[in-house]
Amino acid sequence: MTRLTASTAGHRAVPRVKPVRRPWRLLFAALVLPVLIASLLGGLLRAGVAVPLPAGAAWAGHAVMAHAALMMAGFFGTLIALERAVALKWPPAYAGPVASAGGALLILAGHAEAGRLAMLGAALLFCVASAMILRRQRAAHTALLLVAAVAWAVGSGLQAWRPESAAPLPWWFAFLLLTIAAERLEMTRLTRRHPAALPAFVAIVGTLLAGAAANGVFFGAALVGLALWLFAFDIARHTVRSSGLPRYMAICLLSGYGWLAVGGVTWIAWSLGMPSRDAALHALGLGFVFSMVMGHAPVILPALARVKLRFGPWFYLPLAALHGTLAWRLVAGWGDTASRAQGALGNALAIALFFLTVLGAIAAWRFTSASRS
């Protein structure tokens, strides 16, 4: 087993940031956890899973209608904005994650217009914070972080303007994809980067943004291109041959890149009129994004929350469960609503298993530490 702290990062260099203080941790936990749970329940209901709910739970209907906004802007937007605020050490930056989580809660409470405006305000504050990061450190990856922030703002602006439209979806995905890609671009500096790598990356990002504006074939093609670029140049292709936490992180990353390619192909098919919407959205949102979460959480969480956890092979269980249930959802669920619902339920259980695994790893560290003292 590998003991993991904020300074033990495997193949990812974690900056020494000031952890979030306890009152802030409690506040963000109180804001974010209900958003995540409501988003997961909304996704299950959309997929046809019979979720037992108390009578008169109007928030459930709002969760169904706003599932994408809750998950991508309300949950992931809050977490990423919180990490950016901690790194920036600029107190007003904390207003961004509060606004994004608060906006999600307003939507669940039935105040959709106010919630959408709060989310837009959060995205604009995030743009300011990202611009400040770029000003402090001028580099390709920090410039890309600002581009990702603008993509979030565009998606949230479209949501506020045309709430019933699917137009925000590619912009929100671009926000998450480019945020992750910026971190991976930074990591390529640890290896000898091919001269064509950066120009190819810039071309892919340009195609992705153009495709987000058009919401069509170009967006899917850019997803496939980004997956191929990551397979070719990411440091994970080397660290997967190591052991312990670095190997686990590399497997999470490489498997996520596979789902990114699947998402690109199915997005192209969806754009051409095939019934692959569910496959396109969830290959990206679950297969790619949550694989990144599972890979990076054992490193980011200790740095932000001032906790220590014990890494072990049990971390592979929720990862395998996620991939297995997602494959069932996309393959068996193609045209079969019952199988799709089964896969969706399995996806939610895999995510819940991951969070239980993290809590168990924290408890294991505390128990081992106490027994040694």
Results as ranks from 00 to 15, higher is better:
86 V>N: 12
345 L>C: 15
316 Y>V: 05
86 V>S: 09
73 A>S: 13
112 A>V: 09
24 W>Q: 15
203 A>Q: 13
253 L>A: 08
235 I>S: 14
158 L>S: 04
285 G>R: 07
72 M>K: 13
204 I>R: 12
60 A>E: 10
316 Y>P: 06
161 W>P: 02
145 L>M: 11
228 L>V: 14
117 L>A: 10
334 W>L: 00
11 H>D: 02
61 G>K: 04
333 G>C: 06
2 T>A: 04
5 T>S: 05
50 A>I: 10
96 G>K: 01
137 Q>I: 12
194 H>E: 03
310 R>M: 11
327 A>H: 01
69 A>S: 12
239 T>F: 08
225 G>Q: 00
16 R>A: 12
339 S>Q: 05
153 A>G: 03
258 G>E: 06
26 L>Y: 06
201 F>M: 11
295 G>W: 00
236 A>H: 03
250 A>D: 13
170 P>N: 05
273 G>Q: 04
116 R>S: 15
121 G>W: 00
334 W>A: 11
180 I>Q: 12
272 L>N: 10
164 E>D: 03
182 A>G: 06
204 I>E: 06
55 A>V: 14
127 C>K: 13
146 L>F: 11
226 L>C: 05
290 F>E: 14
17 V>F: 10
185 L>E: 09
14 V>M: 06
364 A>V: 11
326 L>G: 08
180 I>H: 15
15 P>V: 11
91 P>F: 03
240 V>M: 03
363 A>I: 13
163 P>H: 13
294 M>C: 06
207 T>Y: 14
300 I>F: 07
238 H>S: 14
60 A>K: 07
304 L>A: 00
146 L>K: 10
103 G>C: 12
274 M>L: 10
51 V>N: 15
292 M>F: 12
245 L>W: 02
19 P>G: 11
196 A>H: 10
9 A>T: 02
294 M>F: 01
312 G>A: 14
5 T>Y: 02
35 V>G: 06
221 A>V: 00
245 L>Q: 01
120 L>T: 00
256 G>F: 06
84 R>K: 00
64 V>N: 01
210 A>S: 13
258 G>N: 08
112 A>P: 09
267 W>D: 02
239 T>W: 09
160 A>T: 09
1 M>F: 12
311 F>H: 02
144 L>G: 15
41 L>F: 07
163 P>Y: 07
29 A>P: 06
360 G>P: 15
126 F>E: 13
74 G>F: 13
63 A>W: 09
332 A>E: 07
299 V>N: 01
371 S>D: 04
236 A>M: 09
30 A>E: 05
333 G>T: 05
358 V>G: 03
320 A>R: 06
163 P>Q: 10
62 H>A: 11
110 G>E: 03
77 G>K: 07
149 A>Q: 08
26 L>F: 05
210 A>P: 01
319 L>Y: 11
32 V>E: 12
33 L>F: 14
104 A>F: 08
287 G>V: 04
212 A>F: 02
18 K>G: 12
315 F>L: 00
365 W>S: 03
235 I>R: 05
363 A>W: 12
58 A>K: 13
241 R>P: 04
13 A>H: 03
234 D>G: 01
231 F>C: 06
214 A>Q: 14
139 A>V: 15
106 L>E: 00
318 P>E: 08
91 P>E: 02
22 R>D: 09
123 A>M: 01
316 Y>H: 07
83 E>R: 04
78 T>G: 12
